[in-house]
Amino acid sequence: MKKALIAAAAGALVVAGCASMKEMDAKYDAEVVQWMKRDFHARGIATMDRLDQDEVQRVCTQYDNKPPEAMAKQIEAGEMKKIKLPSDGKYMGDWKAGQKIAQRGRGMTWRDKPGSTNGGSCYNCHQLSTAELSFGTIGPSLNQFGKKRGYTVANQKYVYEKIYDSKAFTACSNMPRLGLSGTLTEQQIKDVTAYLMDPNSPVNK
């Protein structure tokens, strides 16, 4: 009887401890943004509003990039609506220009001038043409992409959309939303699409 009481008391203590830990966690969660707003400053084009999370960023941070499936689906559907398809209905540009964009890693940092031409930084994370040995591995290899998937218009559209807003397909993808963020222009996305989907592109050789 006495033992049970002690055990119950200990249990209550543990519960109390957990509650306060949870409170602390919530406090730290709330404070992170305040710390950043106090400790960061705008520089060049990198303005302070970049610290504010949009819904996608907030959910992905909160769920450690693994949101519940229903929530993920909701994000993906919402992002799909944000994609602006090319006005002329054509997804393919010039693969040679696309190669340059894929190679180029500049753009959007506090050192980049407003209005300067941005790159897509594709090679930072993906293998594309086998001729380029310096490629990253954060994303999957896209070598032979068009050849393997098929040179269809549906696939061209998919590539265009994926580059424009990767989160329309994977809610918490590591890949930037290169169209939505204004990093790449419509023409640039077409060029990169061609780099992946043109049969003559070195990606498909």
């Binding site: 602390m24 992170v32 591995t137």
Partner: peptide
Amino acid sequence: EIGKRLFFYRAGPWDFSCATCHAEENTRIR
């Protein structure tokens, strides 16, 4: 605790956090 949260905080035009590049084994940039 704040540092840990900063590490995983996704924001900016490219949706990055420190963890985007530094949370998966055997990856590289270029």
